[in-house]
């Protein structure tokens, strides 16, 4: 346990790991509200157009969505393990685990690319004549689908960049066994991206 004497200073001078993590969590809350606002839109529009949402949801491929869910869940595991690894001083293992995470993030985006591409081929993209000819509820459904999964994909992209930077930090020894709160913060971001997908997946793919 930490015991504090009258004029004790933390051994590491200015380090405040708890403060860093609280800062990261506060940022995550703003993300929660950002996506939360869109979840409210989804809920209200679904309530107003239940039949049309039902029809539109059937056009998404549950299989692709399930595969992407599994990819993201696994990438969350590898990030959590990379933090445990650096805590043991296993630098290479930690970097390899982060590298695996980045590859899985890439696989997620490739799937998303083909999924969107498939929709585009069928003439379904924002403001497409085919989409605008559909009933209002379906237009809303696909509008929300593209905005929410698109914004989420953007987060995946940013998460990949963050994780690559973490790898460089580990390589250079900036992140090391004694000090790895940066990686923990990066990991928190990645897990949030995962949690958002945990909700996007059922809302768009599973609830018909």
């Amino acid at each position: 346990m930490k015991t504090t004497t009258a004029n004790s200073q933390p051994v590491h001078g200015h380090r405040d790991d708890v403060g860093t993590k609280i800062g990261m969590w506060l940022f995550l809350f703003t993300e929660l509200i950002l996506f939360g606002g869109m979840f409210i839109l989804y809920a209200v529009y679904r309530f107003k157009h239940p039949e049309e949402f039902h029809l539109a949801a059937k056009e998404l491929d549950t299989f692709v969505g399930t595969v992407n869910t599994m990819i993201l869940l696994t990438s969350s595991l590898t990030v959590a393990m990379s933090i445990a690894a650096i805590g043991q001083g296993r630098k290479n293992l930690s970097m390899a685990l982060i590298g695996t995470t980045v590859l899985m993030a890439l696989a997620f985006l490739v799937n998303k690319y083909f999924e969107w591409g498939h929709k585009f081929e069928h003439g379904i993209y924002p403001r497409s004549p085919e989409l605008l000819a559909k009933p209002p509820g379906e237009i809303l459904y696909f509008g929300l689908y593209f905005v929410m999964t698109g914004l989420h994909a953007l987060h995946v992209l940013i998460g990949m960049a963050v994780l690559v930077i973490m790898m460089v930090f580990i390589k250079k020894g900036v992140i090391n066994r004694q000090s790895y709160v940066r990686l923990e913060a990066g990991g928190l971001y990645w897990h949030l991206v995962d949690i958002i997908w945990i909700f996007l997946f059922p809302l768009f793919y599973l609830i018909h």
Binding site: S76, L77, A80, G187, L188, H191, I195, I198, F199, I207
Partner: peptide
């Protein structure tokens, strides 16, 4: 019930991620 079951499971999953992976 699909709405209820999927949202309940999604909530359980995120609690697991937050509690364990996010420490």
């Amino acid at each position: 019930w699909v709405i209820i079951s999927t949202l309940a499971i999604a909530s359980i999953k995120s609690v697991l991620v937050a509690n364990v992976f996010m420490h």
